[in-house]
Design a binder for these strands. Structure first.
Length: 439
RNA sequence: GCCGUCGUGGCUCAGUCCGGUUAGAGCGUCUGACUGUUAAUCAGGUGGCCGCAGGUUCGAAUCCUGCCGACGGCGCCA
């Protein structure tokens, strides 16, 4: 490797004007004009124009520069010039232009459809658009680890192959290997509830698999959930942790990814507002009142909120909102009744969802966990589950049970909201959906 | 599971309602020109079993039937 290779971003910083540098990367755009060739080269840090002249390069190297197609990998060195005509304000006049590997005709050109880009995702992830999103994604998952570790949480890794269903109604990916029916994880929850008895406060960032028949811009079959579970924690404290986590993530992205947000054309005023505002908490019952009074929508009490209702509610807010105390009957078996909630016309659960603004939907779902084994059995049977399959789960209630709560955060939904993406499929490098498992 | 939109060169599309020469355009690529391009420009060339299978017709990209595939919305969920 050549000595003196530096990241393109550093060259654009300005301190190298008049000095000789080396950069390496891939040709991003190419134009030629007689005895000059203008090659925009990208590496992971940025793009810079390389202006090759016939009289400054050996003939063979100049010919290479003229004929190299987009995505050809190159190592170049030369003097840096400040020049207003160059994108980014600086360019390199090479006296060495080395092609590492010529590229075939790159299939992705000016006009592309969403479908074509997804078919060629292995190439499309080289784009500035996908690069920006993947960098932000890295900040988001890194922030999640940092947030929980700073607060004394321990990372806990659950099994991905699991024998039981946890979320009632969701569809499972079956794995054919063991004699017993086995599935890919939909949540770490049952295992997390076992682990809090030693670690007390735990979190994870793990893949989740849901074989739902959902074809929307908000659904993936394989996505990442960032979950937490904490012993001794009641539901109110739990939802406050979720609010803090979201704010922490936004702050880290604003600190580290301004350039990437700009590449995406994402205005940041609303994200900055979220840092200082407090996220409202309302009850499900209040949410129905709001829908009726402000929007004339009559939702019968007891029905879970649908997409249209969530979006309508969010029209009234400019930050995420926590909605608590959904009807017990509409909730998963492990969410306990809240006997203290008196203002509701029916039984409600100690649970919450956090809804994101602008139609990005439910980004967090959590609850306190029922510790009453008889109640758990009753609601498992309601969901058509055999309580006999949950023996290990009931054991967690038999040996020194304590109140505990937890939630799951949809990593891609948070990324889609922060990045302002039209489709959640762009929030993950290789999306898997109802209809796609390639490339 | 329900509803809707769409399949035409490598890519993006027009043409389809109302059937009629040899199916067009832009981009890419290739050849040539050009000493400052900004998704350069100019000239020329290349490239198509019109998703698949039947049917109607003198004649089908166009009309009919079936199938396949893609995309989006709802429901459900993060």
């Amino acid at each position: 490797m050549d000595c003196g290779i530096i990241p393109i971003r550093e060259v654009l910083g300005g301190g190298y004007a008049g000095k000789k540098v080396g950069v390496r990367g891939w040709i991003y755009r190419t134009r030629s004009s007689g005895s000059k060739a203008f090659l925009v080269v990208r590496d992971s840090s940025g793009i810079i124009q390389v202006t090759a002249s016939r009289d400054e390069l050996p003939e063979r190297e100049f010919d290479d520069a003229k004929k190299a197609l987009i995505e050809t990998s190159v190592v170049v060195s030369g003097k840096v010039f400040e020049d207003k005509r160059a994108p980014g304000g600086y360019e390199i006049h090479p006296d060495k232009f080395g092609v590492v590997s010529f590229a075939d005709v790159f299939p992705i050109t000016k006009d592309q459809s969403e479908e074509f880009l997804r078919d060629n995702r292995h190439l499309w992830i080289r784009s500035r658009y996908m690069t920006a999103i993947m960098k932000i994604r890295s900040t988001v998952t890194g922030a999640i680890h940092e947030f929980f570790r700073e607060r004394g949480y321990c990372e806990f890794t659950p099994p991905i192959l699991q024998p039981n269903q946890c979320e009632g109604g969701s569809t499972l990916f079956e794995v054919k290997y063991y004699g017993e029916k086995t599935y890919l994880s939909q949540t770490w929850q049952l295992y997390a509830e076992a682990a809090i008895f030693s670690l007390e406060k735990i979190y994870d960032v793990s893949p989740t698999f849901r074989a739902e028949k959902s074809k929307t811009s908000r659904h993936l079959s394989e996505f990442w959930m960032a979950e937490m579970e904490a012993a001794w924690m009641e539901i109110d404290e739990c939802s406050e942790v979720a609010k803090d986590e979201i704010k922490f993530i936004i702050r880290k992205v604003l600190e580290n990814n301004r350039d990437d947000l700009e590449v995406l054309g994402r205005e940041t005023a609303d994200l900055e507002h979220c840092l200082n505002a407090s996220f409202p908490t309302i009850t499900y019952t209040d949410a129905l009142k709001l829908l009726k009074e402000k929007d004339g929508m009559d939702v019968p009490w007891g029905k879970d909120l649908r997409t249209i209702e969530e979006e309508t509610i969010m029209n009234h807010f400019d930050t995420p909102v926590v909605v608590t105390h959904y009807p017990k009957e509409a909730m998963a078996f492990y969410k306990p009744v809240d006997p203290a909630a008196k203002d509701a016309p029916g039984q409600v659960a100690k649970c919450f969802d956090m809804l994101a603004p602008k139609g990005y939907g439910e980004i967090v779902g959590g609850s306190q966990r029922d510790t009453d084994v008889e109640e758990l059995k009753k609601y498992l049977e309601r969901d058509g589950e055999d309580p006999a399959n949950y023996k290990f789960y009931f054991d967690t209630r038999r040996y020194g049970s304590v109140p505990h709560s937890g939630y799951g955060l949809g990593v891609e939904r948070v990324i889609a909201w922060i990045c302002g993406l039209e489709n959640i499929k762009d929030a993950i490098p290789f999306p898997r959906t109802l209809a796609r498992c390639s490339p």
